[in-house]
Write a protein that binds this DNA or RNA. Sequence first.
DNA 1: GTTGACTGTCGAAGCGCTTCGACACACCTA
DNA 2: TAGGTGTGTCGAAGCGCTTCGACAGTCAAC
Lengths: 337, 337
Amino acid sequence: MVTLAEVAQHAGVSSSTVSYVLSGKRSISTTTRQRVEESIRKLGYHPNAGARALASSRSNIIALMVPLRTDMYVPVMMEIAVAVAAGARAHGYDILLLTGEEGPDAVRRVTGSGLADAMILMDVELDDERLPLLRGTQQPSVLIGLPADTEGLTCVDLDFRATGALCVEHLAELGHRDIAVVGEAPAVYERHTGFAERTLDGLRTRARELGLRLLHRPCEGGYDATAATLARVFDERPETSGFVVQNESALEPLLALLRQQGRAVPEDVSVVAVCPEQVATQASVRVTSVAVPAQEMGRRAVEQLVGKLDGLGGDEVVLLAPELTVRASSGPAPVRP
Amino acid sequence: MVTLAEVAQHAGVSSSTVSYVLSGKRSISTTTRQRVEESIRKLGYHPNAGARALASSRSNIIALMVPLRTDMYVPVMMEIAVAVAAGARAHGYDILLLTGEEGPDAVRRVTGSGLADAMILMDVELDDERLPLLRGTQQPSVLIGLPADTEGLTCVDLDFRATGALCVEHLAELGHRDIAVVGEAPAVYERHTGFAERTLDGLRTRARELGLRLLHRPCEGGYDATAATLARVFDERPETSGFVVQNESALEPLLALLRQQGRAVPEDVSVVAVCPEQVATQASVRVTSVAVPAQEMGRRAVEQLVGKLDGLGGDEVVLLAPELTVRASSGPAPVRP
DNA sequence: GTTGACTGTCGAAGCGCTTCGACACACCTA
DNA sequence: TAGGTGTGTCGAAGCGCTTCGACAGTCAAC
């Protein structure tokens, strides 16, 4: 391995000069800089990450904790993770991938060892056990998701409460009075995952305000579970004409089942989904949806974090405004006989 | 931050002793060890990763290059990545997440800087441009996927050629004579992705041997693209009674379309898929499938890599044997009029 | 011409850990 | 009792980089 000292010798300068050429922290004359850069290229020099981290107490690594759960729709997580990775690279950071498995211990390990300069946490629960640790360290962090108490934390998330409200409003405007919500798996609610509960809250509040009837059913997703859920919904509320789906793996099954039962979408039943664009546009019916802006969330999280690392900006909650795109799955409520 | 020296002082021993307690590389008396461990706990000591990496030239980090492409079915990738992360942690390694975006440069960066001790590459093309770099370094690496030339490389993959053959055999045994293959997106083939081409090879070879007619059509996935593909298939080969699907996002659309067209599965048409278990069992019909053992692949890749890092084992190609699970989507070919 | 302010470069002191050789001591054997 | 063999511990020398203070040299201003 070529070292900085060897580069310095090759270029006929001191090693500190090479270091300053690399970091740009002091001005270097053009001729010297060029000579050094030439040597770097010729020798194929790469700074040693460990030495750099030790000397500067900066690893240029951002830890990303992604959930490992199987009851979550992974593509969204993956999309966020990829956006985070790309964004981080653009700012000169690498990503250390931590699976949720380790839980709070991972936070301790990373902050304690200086392995990473900062962390991004995904899949935040309303009362997440990792939060006290984050508050008790000076290591910058950003949550993707919104816990109950955001005091002293930086969070980035879609405004799921507004999302819920938006879905209800859309269906209300179309004249629907009985709305069913096909939600995430029961375990997601049991865990008090922020986004699920807040969506539900938004849905319920707005429905109450507008005088609609709302029926919420968690659903495991997949064909069978969705069929069971659907049956129970129509059993309990035969008048249901509007569906809000917040569970990607229940969306296509739901559409298929409705079709099979002879309920036309959107003539008899309207469907609104909360899901990534791609899912909504690739389904068997183009689905009216509020997109989960995974990329945007990942990007913003990195931006917030880099801002904090550079000493700018404080604690802030960034809530992205939801946007509802009307497609072919929603239309005027059927006229009651 | 607490340092090793502080722990040593607190325990009344030299810092090298603390280091040996931590690493176990020299024998330490029980009393000393306990005293040191006590101090470590009391002071809340965490070894500094940078210093450790510098002194030992070992970072205990494994780099994982995952593709960033959008034309690949991400859940499989994610599943592998998560399995890799879990496996790595079990062996004391962390995972550095590299997106395919950087390409060969990422390999250079990581090997050059000592950021990671080893790498795992996913989404390998038959003639991958990263391979020469891997061969030219002593840094251990494992590919998940199989390039054309495996000389000097360690690879882990499902035996996709056997997978293709297995699908054809199953359909042949059921009496199907005309088989259509709904494949991955065209871009996947254009890139000469190993698994796609090898599956196709297995399908074609076995079909030829058994005297079956095989029609292969790449497919973007999603409802519309699948509909178009399906139309073209029946247009060209109206007799088609067996489908092999190697594209998760085309599977459910295919089933829905067949249903819509009044073609019963499996009475009129049999469907065999190459996909994760979950996709096969959660579809609207339980699909006969060869599972892509993502977890197993991730686990094996880590094992191979750790073996190499510990100086055991050499270059090896691990091909996992495919297993076909018969479910409700395949049955005897319809009797020709 | 002297003063002062800059600029560009250097030397050296760490950063916190691992690891090697040395060494003190206890124990056994001859 | 002298010599050999282990055991357990210590000291010190780095690992390759960053960064701080120092210091020539240059140039403008008075």
